[in-house]
C-alpha cells in the first residue's frame, strides 16, 4: 500500500494546508452524549412498535460490535476475521453461568470480558506475527476451528443442538417481556463501545495503534512495542466483543454454533459494517450499522423465501462495490466532501 493511501485510510490526511484539526476527547464525548440524546428520542418514538424496536436493538448491537472490531481492525489495521470467536466466548460464558449456576447475566459480563480477552490474547500472540491478508487467513481458520470445537465439546456449549436459556422474566435475569428494555441495553452497549473507542483513539494506545497500522517497521524503530500494542488493542476490542456476545445470547436466549460462529453472519459482519461506514473512523461503524442492519431486515423480508441467501448476496456485492469505489466508507466520503467545501470557504 502506498503511504499516501495508507494515511487516507484514517480519515485524517495531510493536505497542503497542514493537518486536519484533531478533535479533543471532550468534544468526542460531547458528540457521543448528543448521539445518546438522539437514541433516547428514537426510543420514545418507537416505544410501542416491537418490530422497529427489534431492528433498533440489532442496529445498536452490531454498531457496538463493529465499533469494537474497529479498535484493532480500523485503528490498528489488523483485519481480524475471527472476532466471531470472541463474540461466542462471551455468549457461551454468560449462557453457562446463567444456565448452570443461575448467576445473574449482569454479573456474567465481567467473566465474559475476561474470557473473551484471554482467548484473544492466547490466539493473537502467534497470529500477530502475520501481516495483512495472512493475518486475516489465520483468523478465518481460527473461526472455523472454534466452530468445530464448539460442536465437539457439547458439555460446555450444548453441541450442535445448542443451549436454550430459560425464560424467567425479571431485571436480575436480563429477561424481559417487552423489546423496549433490550433496545435500551443495546443502546447502552453501543455508547460504551463508542466511549471506549474514543478514549482509546485519543490515548497513547490509540496513537501507537495508528502508527503500527501506517508503518509497522517505522513504529518499531521509534521504540513502540509493536506486539504489545497490538495485543492491548486486541484485548480491548475482544473484551467489548465478548460483552456484545453475552447481550446477544440473553436477547435471543439461545446459543448454538451456527448462530454464533457463522463466518458470513457474524465474523465478517463486523468488518463489513466498518468498511461500509468507514474503517478507522470513530463513527464509521455506527454509520455502517445504521445502513446495513435495517437494509438486511428489509432484504430478508422481501427476498427471504423467494431467494435464500439473497441478503448475503447483496452484502457480498456491496463489499466489492465499497472496496472498489468508496474505500473510505460513508463517513470518509462525507468528510471528504466537507473538506472540499471547507477549503473553498477558506479561499
Amino acid at each position: 500500500m502506498s503511504k499516501i493511501e495508507a494515511t487516507e485510510l484514517g480519515g485524517r490526511r495531510t493536505t497542503g494546508k497542514g493537518d486536519r484539526h484533531i478533535t479533543s476527547l471532550a468534544t468526542e464525548l460531547l458528540r457521543i452524549a448528543g448521539l445518546a440524546g438522539l437514541f433516547a428520542i428514537a426510543l420514545v418514538v418507537l416505544r410501542d412498535d416491537p418490530f422497529l424496536l427489534n431492528i433498533l436493538a440489532y442496529t445498536c448491537l452490531f454498531g457496538g460490535l463493529a465499533t469494537s472490531w474497529n479498535i484493532i481492525g480500523g485503528f490498528g489495521g489488523q483485519f481480524s476475521l475471527g472476532h466471531g470467536v470472541f463474540f461466542a466466548a462471551g455468549a457461551y460464558t454468560t449462557a453457562n453461568l446463567y444456565f448452570h449456576f443461575g448467576i445473574s447475566p449482569w454479573l456474567t459480563l465481567i467473566p465474559a470480558v475476561v474470557v473473551a480477552s484471554a482467548v484473544a490474547l492466547a490466539v493473537s500472540w502467534p497470529t500477530f506475527r502475520l501481516k495483512g491478508p495472512f493475518f486475516a487467513i489465520a483468523t478465518l481458520a481460527l473461526n472455523e476451528v472454534a466452530f468445530v470445537l464448539a460442536n465437539y465439546f457439547d458439555g460446555l456449549t450444548g453441541g450442535p443442538r445448542g443451549m436454550m436459556l430459560p425464560f424467567r422474566a425479571g431485571f436480575e435475569n436480563m429477561v424481559f417481556t417487552s423489546k423496549l428494555p433490550y433496545a435500551i441495553i443495546m443502546i447502552g452497549f453501543l455508547l460504551v463501545t463508542l466511549v471506549t473507542a474514543a478514549i482509546v483513539l485519543r490515548s497513547r494506545l490509540g496513537y501507537y495503534l495508528q502508527a503500527v497500522r501506517l508503518d509497522e517497521d517505522a513504529a518499531r524503530s521509534v521504540g513502540i512495542g509493536v506486539l504489545r500494542v497490538k495485543l492491548m488493542g486486541m484485548a480491548v476490542s475482544a473484551g467489548l466483543t465478548g460483552v456484545g456476545g453475552s447481550l446477544f445470547a440473553m436477547y435471543i436466549r439461545y446459543v448454538d454454533p451456527p448462530t454464533l460462529l457463522s463466518i458470513q453472519d457474524v465474523g465478517v459482519r463486523f468488518l463489513l459494517i466498518s468498511l461500509i461506514g468507514g474503517v478507522g473512523t470513530l463513527y464509521g461503524p455506527l454509520a455502517g450499522a445504521l445502513l446495513i442492519v435495517p437494509l438486511e431486515f428489509q432484504l430478508r423480508a422481501t427476498l427471504g423465501s423467494a431467494l435464500p441467501g439473497g441478503n448475503l448476496m447483496v452484502l457480498g456485492a456491496l463489499l466489492v462495490i465499497f472496496a472498489l469505489f468508496m474505500r473510505k466508507g460513508l463517513v470518509g466520503t462525507v468528510s471528504d466532501i466537507w473538506d472540499r467545501y471547507g477549503r473553498r470557504r477558506d479561499e
Binding site: 465478517v268 441467501g309 448476496m313 457480498g316 472498489l324
Partner: peptide
Amino acid sequence: QPLQNEPFMQIFATFGLLMFFQNLVLG
C-alpha cells in the same frame, strides 16, 4: 486490478466475491 496496491481492500473484495458467488448458487 483497480485494487492492486490495496491489500486490505483486496481482502474485502475477494471476501465479497466469496459471499456473492456462494449465495448466488444458494439462491
